[in-house]
């Protein structure tokens, strides 16, 4: 009796819910189909089509013309300058970033919260403002009499400014999670500070330092706004790849500009792949 009652009682709602699940499944199916389509369309309009257009424009004159333009003396000079300055900055800031992160985690001093905010400042500051900022202090009217405007030092300085947060913020959480007991145990067992640093600390933070250097390098290779004002963009001397592309575009050499851009696109893709591998392999700072 009870069973039957339950059955009859259950029947209408289950029929209802079957129907509503079906309509919901339908609407969810529509959403699931149109959502990706919309997202891929947006991505295509802003990223994929422009990238394809750059590749196609770069090869309008055939592969030989592409190669000639991508490896012209001016292109090579600009690309080499960009890569070398970015490498210098990535390595230097990896060390400076390690030092700053270490001080921020292990040291206590007044005003630490302010310093913490200052580290993020280059993230927030527009790149042109960053360039102007450095120019006002280390340019022709420098109050210290230090004028680096129009030199390669200026490029390194500007790149160091914009990439510093990457170098600090990738290492900082790893240092914060370091197990201090292991360090103390090693020290109590007679390990010298150098040995502790080399055998215990460095292996843990090396992947994070590498990730930070990779991010800084990627950012530095594509940097334009902060570099262009202070470097003066002199061909062969202080013209980075972005500035060279900009000047080619200004002179309406579109295939030429696209050829140099293609080199940067390939470099960016390679860096993203490398960073993705690093993140999956060592789980540094990444998203699960």
């Amino acid at each position: 009796m009870v069973d039957v009652g339950l059955e009859t009682h259950r029947a209408p709602p289950s029929a209802l819910s079957a129907k509503s699940t079906r309509t919901r499944a339908l609407s969810r199916g529509a959403a699931a189909a149109s959502g990706p389509a919309l997202a891929v369309t947006y991505l295509s309009l802003l990223v994929l089509l422009p990238l394809a257009a750059i590749l196609s424009q770069a090869f309008t004159g055939g592969p030989a013309a592409f190669w000639r333009e991508a490896t012209s003396p001016e292109s090579l000079a600009a690309l080499e300058l960009t890569v070398v300055c970015s490498l210098i900055v990535a390595v230097f800031n990896a060390l400076a970033g390690l030092l700053i992160a270490w001080v921020m985690v292990r040291d206590e001093f007044a005003g630490k919260r302010v310093v913490n905010a200052v580290i993020d400042l280059p993230f927030a500051l527009p790149t042109v403002v960053a360039g102007l900022t450095l120019l006002s202090l280390y340019g022709p009217s420098s109050p210290f009499g230090v004028n680096v405007a129009g030199t390669r030092v200026a490029i390194v300085l500007a790149l160091a400014f914009v990439t510093l947060p990457f170098s600090v913020r990738t290492v900082q959480p790893v240092i914060a999670e370091l197990d201090r007991e292991t360090e103390e145990a090693a020290a109590s067992l007679g390990a010298s500070p150098a040995a502790v640093a080399k055998r215990i600390v460095l292996p843990s933070i090396a992947p994070a330092m590498l990730a930070g250097a990779g991010l800084a390098f990627a950012r530095a290779v594509g940097e334009f706004g902060s570099v262009v004002l202070i470097s003066g963009s002199l061909p062969y001397k202080t013209q980075v790849a972005s500035a060279w592309i900009y000047s080619l575009y200004g002179d309406d050499f579109l295939p030429y500009a696209a050829a140099v851009s293609t080199v940067l696109v390939v470099l960016a893709l390679a860096l993203l792949l490398g960073m993705g591998w690093l993140r999956r392999r060592f789980d540094v700072g990444g998203i699960q």
Partner: peptide
């Protein structure tokens, strides 16, 4: 595609981004 290409603007020079838009 979404997952891989969404990060590209982070690693690419803004000048190249602008050039791509002009070419389209």
């Amino acid at each position: 595609i979404l997952d891989a290409f969404i990060d590209i603007p982070l690693a690419l020079s803004p000048v190249v981004v602008g050039l791509g838009l002009v070419l389209v």
